[in-house]
């Protein structure tokens, strides 16, 4: 019981520390120019990484060969380029994924 509470408290503390680090260091002074440059280009780079990370556990050799996730992502991106309607893109992409992952066993 104590171990559970201690562990959860430690996880909470560590997590808030990682999230607060930049605010602690740069609330009074301006971040150095290199970091200022980095933060401007990090969102597109991080979104790319987060999308790719969805495929990091995909087993390409075994059925379904990652097809449901690939198709879902392509449908989402294509729809979003075409209609630019967030909910439509996400709903259709997720539906494609769910249907395909049930059909291709």
């Amino acid at each position: 019981m104590t171990r559970l509470f201690l562990t959860v408290a430690a996880m909470a503390l560590v997590t808030i520390l990682t999230r607060a680090a930049p605010f602690i260091f740069f609330s009074k002074r301006k971040p150095p120019a290199a970091l200022d440059y980095l933060q401007a280009y990090l969102p597109p780079a991080l979104m790319t990484i987060l999308v790719l990370s969805a495929f990091k556990d995909t087993r390409w050799v075994d059925s379904p060969h990652g097809i449901p996730a690939l198709a879902g992502a392509v449908v989402t991106a294509a729809l979003h380029l075409w209609r630019r309607n967030v909910l439509l893109s996400i709903a259709c992409g997720t539906a494609v994924y769910m249907v395909l992952s049930r059909i291709i066993a």
Binding site: A54, P68, T76, V86, I90, T94, M98
Partner: peptide, 20 residues
């Protein structure tokens, strides 16, 4: 509900398209 969590991946795809 297996697979509903793909909405998270789809969200990142949408945000990536917006970033581009």
């Amino acid at each position: 509900t297996t697979g509903l969590d793909f909405a998270m991946t789809a969200l990142f795809v949408v945000l990536l398209v917006e970033q581009t």
